[in-house]
Amino acid sequence: MNLLLQIWRSSLGKKYIMALSGAGLFLFVIGHLVGNLQFFLEPAAINRYGHFLKSTPEVLWPARLGLLALIGLHIVSALRLTAENKAARPEQYQAKVAPKDASLASRTMAMSGAIIASFIVYHLLHFTVQTPQVNFTGTDFDQLYEPNSGGADIYAMIVCGFSVWYVSLFYLISIGLLCTHLGHGVAAMFQSLGLRNHTWAPRIATGARVAAILIFLGYASIPVSVLLGRGKEYAKRIQSGVSPDKAGSAIKAAKGVEK
């Protein structure tokens, strides 16, 4: 226990926690993207995938709690480190010049991180908790059923959710920030864990940037294709299966709960 406390108290110890939790979250971001890209197959594919994820709560919940723990560790050590870093320079320089050779991404990690965190909260309410008030479509995503299987229709939910342009815009901005966060963060992760030297440094820096851009393009492709009309007809068909009364009453019920 004493050793763990020692790790937490040391600056490098917290950097290790940042790096390891960041690595876990980076792998999740890749896995999540690969799963979501099934959107470009027939609707049944991603619906089957959604059903598969939700069908085993014994696995789903530990995974969710694990991710939450990673986010928690990442944020708590970031806050602590930022506070220590601020305290290390109480008096600022008068000459206002950008820090030498420091990329914008590296200087704005805390800000990009904070916006990504607020996006995660919204994203969970939007597509996981499916709070009808935050999707701005008037449709309760909970009520979208696939006609054949009768299961939840993830495909229609994605189309419906991203057809609101400002929701898609917020999504794209957040993914863009995630891209800059990872472009610096993934390379810094290797540095913090000491897994970097003059031979690997350029490869790690390029690899991190390429990974970040691929992740951006992958995630951005979904709302962009929806805004360009992909799945519109299908979603309309599924939505029309939802009686307006039913959706309306669901929203009212949710609002009632809120009151």
């Binding site: 950097k15 220590e84 050779d101 990690m109």
Partner: peptide, 12 residues
């Protein structure tokens, strides 16, 4: 002292 954010200002 603060900790390293790998900005590279120091080596510059």
């Amino acid at each position: 002292f603060g900790s390293c954010t790998v900005t590279g200002s120091c080596e510059a």
